[in-house]
Nucleic acid binder design. Structure first.
Lengths: 254, 254
DNA sequence: GCTTGACCCTGACGCGACGTCAGGCTGTTG
DNA sequence: CAACAGCCTGACGTCGCGTCAGGGTCAAGC
């Protein structure tokens, strides 16, 4: 008795199926260190520890065979595994953040009627080799009206909703422009209140936009020329103005 | 001419293989909107846009069939897809952050010679149902020495390295205790310098530890009783002291 | 003591999402 | 006009399991 956990308990604990543990046993990735007289698998603490490592590496995308060589490499102590896992997880974190940022950028672009290039859209999917295909694609159907057309179709949202959302956005933009014209400082309470309204509008109509995320958008308004152009067409200096107000507002929230 | 991109160009642009595009065509997930007289696939802008959606949903773990139903659902406009993708990506971000934190906790625990329970280790792998298995496992081999044993073996790092690292850690801890005894305020420059040394020690020996991450560790020292106990055994009040110093140090860096 | 029902075992086949040839057509370039 | 890169359609292989099928095990309750 007390020779370890059954395969079912182990599976439940680790959040995998019994079949998965059978599989890992068969391919020699994780064989329980004991069996009962009747042939029941018995998982000891050390087995669970190994299972944990296996699941981590699996989650990180390693094929099981490679996981086995990693874990069986006697020259790699546990601390090294932890360091590697840590590094890989932080890479993944960055990548996910980039994807979140890309989706937010796309939303913002849609709201403004700006269309992003396909290169930009795919940028976030790793291993990117720019120049080459950028030029190629641009040449093939870069400046045509195909984009404008495919743009038109994609924008649905029930026209009514869209018009309401657009009106809301225009309203805040006009009030920003008014504040700018009246000489109200972009870091003033009044401008920050407008920024806050802008943020809550995004949250209502598009996605839950935290102050930090909003600050990121603010930066983009002056860093990406197309977003800058959008605001500059409303009023000269408005891009910088909104950007500053938004970031100031984010700062006061924290 | 100019009827769209070839399958090769498209694959390169999107960072997938030609075979993948063939597959998507065959299963009807993404059929290029045109073909040349010779039967060559021609991908139009709208096709690329769809491909982008497909890859995003795929990355998020959806089976291709489900991706198809999602994208073919006429009642779901593009904005809704963006919102959903945003939500899913943020979930994933949170999950990854939790895993990073778990790995850091494990490293910290190892450095202190504390062993975490298997429940804690698996906690981070979603869909967690606590109570039940917690009790079960605890009963089966909770307090035995099995853990201690499996602990011993896992700690390799070449004994020499480990001793050096341990000595370094002990040194800083002793100096923290000394500062506490001498009545040096935990938010004082002297204590913060010690905290900074602590942080750099972690960075050298374990993983790159940013000030924010370090602040997180500091919080843990008072929130998790085992980490608290570790420090309290060195000197009463030391857990809170180190925690405060570490967080103060993190604050001054930012 | 015997049955019931939950849990365990080992095959063995199936499946999703492609990878990887094979055998043959296309089309641009020197 | 030959060569070579690129495209086509089968068709089989692979990885990581899911899903039966057919049969043993074991604590619980009658």
């Amino acid at each position: 008795m007390n020779g370890g956990m059954s395969v079912g308990d182990t599976a439940a604990l680790a959040g995998v199926t019994v079949r998965t543990l059978h599989h890992y046993d068969r391919i020699g990735l994780l064989s329980p260190s004991g069996r009962t007289a009747a042939g029941y698998r018995q998982y000891a603490p050390a087995d669970l520890e190994r299972l944990h490592q296996v699941l981590l590496y699996r989650e990180l995308g390693f094929p099981l065979e490679e996981v086995a060589t990693l874990l069986d490499d006697a020259s790699a102590d546990p601390a090294e595994h932890l360091r590697r896992q840590h590094r890989l997880l932080r890479d993944r974190l960055e990548r996910t953040q980039a994807m979140v940022a890309a989706v937010e950028k796309e939303m913002e672009a849609r709201a403004m009627g700006i269309s992003l290039t396909p290169e930009e859209r795919f940028e976030v999917f790793g291993d990117w080799l720019p120049e080459e295909y950028a030029a190629e694609a641009e040449e093939k159907w870069g400046g045509t009206d195909a984009w404008a057309q495919s743009q038109q179709r994609t924008r649905a949202m029930t026209k009514e909703d869209w018009l309401r959302v657009k009106a809301e956005g225009d309203d805040v933009e006009r009030r920003f422009a008014g504040a700018l014209a009246a000489g109200v400082a972009p870091a003033s309470e009044q401008a920050m209140d407008l920024a806050e309204e802008h943020r809550q509008q995004i949250s209502r109509n598009f996605y839950d936009c935290s102050p930090e995320m909003h600050a990121g958008l603010g930066r983009m308004y002056v860093e990406d020329e197309r977003f800058t152009a959008y605001y500059e067409r409303i009023a000269p200096g408005l891009a910088q103005y909104v950007s500053t107000a938004v970031q100031a507002n984010a700062a006061r929230q924290g």
